[in-house]
């Protein structure tokens, strides 16, 4: 039975040759740097790079007990939860509204999908220009309205700014998936519910939302991973992790400690911890995507 799915190659070497490019890329760009990071994480290097010393798990112990690292972990959780929630809620709202539009449907969708094509650093710059206290257009409006807007000094405002920028960029992606999800719900279900006496709100919460669950779950995982790892560019462009360490996420701290402060051992230990988090998140995703809730 299994043989029906197996292709038999006449040449023994051919399958390996076909796999080679993919294997090479994975080896060079993942396994090599990853093993370097693991190697580095158990060494201590002097500031001039002249001598290295094996310290075992010392770097990890120090990183985990470092209050700055714990702060960074907290910042990451706040940032990720806020970004994911905002990006998904707004995207769902837009998708539900776009689903009702009949005339010019495609124009709306195209316009709403555009932000996804903007590179993270550029998205960050856009938001920076709008909200920079000294030259930002919207910052000027906020201040003239009497609101003391200064994300360069106020940590909470800085967080609001990076969360907005990161969420804004992700909304398009979520929107696409929600629109597809909504379209896959048969119209007759909604009509049956209408005949069954459910108002628009009730229909959404009792029929549409439960049927979107597979999409929502998928997006939850993707958005969390995005907020954790893919927002470096935005943070770098908008706040640089500041003010103080108010927006320094785990990824940003790896960069800061390793490339700016040149504490290679600590940085490597942090990146190994991050790698473990990625693997855990991916495992959860696959576990659930594999036995994704299948309706109908």
């Amino acid at each position: 039975m299994a043989s029906s799915n197996n292709v038999t190659f006449p040449n023994k070497l051919l399958p390996y040759l076909l796999l080679a490019p993919q294997l090479a890329i994975t080896l060079i760009f993942f396994y090599w740097p990853a093993s370097q990071a693991i190697y580095q994480s158990v060494l201590r290097e002097d500031p001039f790079g002249l001598s290295t010393q094996f310290v075992g798990l010392g770097n990890f112990r120090r990183v985990i007990s470092d209050p700055n690292y714990l702060n960074s972990l907290q910042v990451t959780i706040v940032f990720s939860v806020a970004t994911t929630l905002i990006a998904m809620t707004i995207a769902l709202l837009l998708a539900v509204m776009a689903d009702k539009v009949i005339r010019g449907k495609n124009i709306y969708r195209t316009l709403l999908i555009w932000p996804y094509a903007v590179a993270p650093a550029i998205a960050g710059m856009l938001w920076l220009f709008l909200f920079n206290p000294s030259m930002g257009t919207l910052a000027y409006l906020a201040r003239s309205a009497g609101y003391n807007w200064d994300p360069l000094l106020n940590g909470n405002q800085a967080m609001v700014l990076v969360v907005s920028a990161a969420a804004w960029k992700q909304i398009s992606y979520n929107f696409l998936f929600f629109v597809a999800g909504l379209q896959s719900i048969p119209k007759s279900l909604i009509e049956a519910a209408a005949i069954d006496g459910a108002g628009e709100n009730k229909r959404f919460w009792t029929i549409v939302f439960p049927l979107l669950a597979p999409t929502t779950f998928f997006l939850l995982v993707v958005n969390t991973v995005y907020a954790f790892f893919d927002t470096f560019g935005i943070i770098h462009a908008v706040t640089g992790g500041g003010p103080g360490k108010a927006t320094e996420t785990l990824v940003y701290k790896v960069y800061n400690d390793g490339f700016v402060n040149l504490i290679l051992g600590d940085s490597a230990a942090q990146s190994v911890i991050l790698m473990i988090i990625v693997i855990a998140l991916t495992a959860i995703q696959f576990r659930y995507v594999e036995r994704k809730v299948h309706y109908g």
């Binding site: 048969p186 007759s188 309706y295």
Partner: peptide, 17 residues
């Protein structure tokens, strides 16, 4: 909902969840 009718659809339109 206010017409007090019930409808059987071609694809049945049962709520799958």
């Amino acid at each position: 909902a206010e017409r007090d009718i019930a409808m059987v659809f071609q694809n049945y339109a049962l709520y799958p969840h």
